[in-house]
Amino acid sequence: MQPIITIRHLAKNYGEKVVLKDINLDIFPGQIIGYIGPNGAGKSTTVKILTGIIQEYSGEVMVFGTNLRDSILEVKSKVGYIPELAELYDLLTPREYLNFIGKLYHLSDDVIEDRSRKMLNSFSLLENMDQRMDSFSKGMKQKVLITSGLLHNPSIVIMDEPLSGLDANAVILVKELLQALKQEGKTIFYCSHMMDVVEKVSDRIVLINNGNIIADGTIGELREQSADTLEQIFSRLTSGGNQIQAADDLAAAMNAGG
């Protein structure tokens, strides 16, 4: 099978600071990739390159068999991006925001309206469709963002902490959605800190640290050497497992006199 995304020697630096050193990755259609790493490891930078937001990098990224640099618009039109932190224009209502996004994907008004209503209904947000989002909770905004990322029926869905701020029911919904999208043959690039979710939903887990991939495989493969959970594997590989000592130090600091 041909990989849908191929990354070769991907590197990126901001001035002196090297964020990505040498990323090499093949992603196959219908896979759910859990892309994990500590803060500042380079996860978001990888995502921004894949979505075409960052266009200055070295190395090669092939999507749908074509070089990302050469066919950026074509790739963008087939990729759905769901960022973290609910970055949206919250003075608009969901209907207005989705209409705006839909226009950027050249969707007709009817298609936008129909899909928006159905998707927001699934998120129990239909009745808030004409309410300004500045009064929305973080979770509600995140649901609108997820809708906006899926509105154009993309083949690849790139999610950066999509569960951020969602309540338990919405988390279950999104987890089920990931499986449903997979059944439809969509490829999902799932970036998160929530180890238990990544462990459950991902076909394959890619762990990056300091701009390099340090582990790549199914959860079974990663566990081969020990019976650890993904969280323990993550901690061992990225910080040497010394979090217990750090927690003890923090607790001790509360009793320090001065």
């Binding site: 979505t51 075409g52 937001i53 618009l73 074509e74 963008k76 039109s77 990729v79 991006y81 960022p83 932190l85 970055e87 949206l88 224009y89 919250d90 705006f100 996004i101 950027l104 994907y105 050249h106 906006s148």
Partner: peptide, 17 residues
């Protein structure tokens, strides 16, 4: 200009020629 200038990621992630 906007306080929510970060929300402008949409222009870059969508196929705007």
């Amino acid at each position: 200009m906007s306080d929510q200038y970060k929300a402008a990621w949409v222009y870059y992630a969508t196929p705007v020629m």
